[in-house]
Amino acid sequence: MKITAIPDYCLGCGLCRIYCAAAHDGFQGNVLRAFKHGSPLPRINLINWQGLTYFNVCRHCQDAPCINACISGAMQRDENGRVYVDNSRCVSCYTCILVCPFGHPQVSRERPGILKCDLCRESNREPACLKHCPNEAIIWDEESGPTGSAKNKVHGE
């Protein structure tokens, strides 16, 4: 289970980041409330490379290094395969940040813990980025089934 964006149709407008930020931290998707009364952080990075914008977000890896490296058991996978962080357990050692080859988890500015994409599991709705992408460039990645861990391929096998 993961989302991805088709670089050919990503505008780089950054709306995904805005709606992502507003979807978390109790703002319930209200952009104005989030940005006027808080300083929400998105869990998405947009990377410009060779004239295209790439959507850098958690892949919810099958054999997720962040889960395996988490010293406190805060990083977990839910029944739907979504990797999320339980910040009440997080001790801010940032090992997850170190082991993520995509540089996805971020330091939370507001409070201890980290920020990462949880596919909007709290709101139990469609991920805000996917829902609000004006060009439908963000899609569910259907193909990435349980293909095993690339870490296996990189480090093992």
């Binding site: 505008l11 950054g14 805005i18 104005l32 006027k36």
Partner: peptide, 13 residues
């Protein structure tokens, strides 16, 4: 101004 969140989407677009 009371609504603008200075996200820069308009600039980018």
């Amino acid at each position: 101004e009371s609504r603008c969140i200075k996200c820069g989407v308009c600039v980018q677009q």
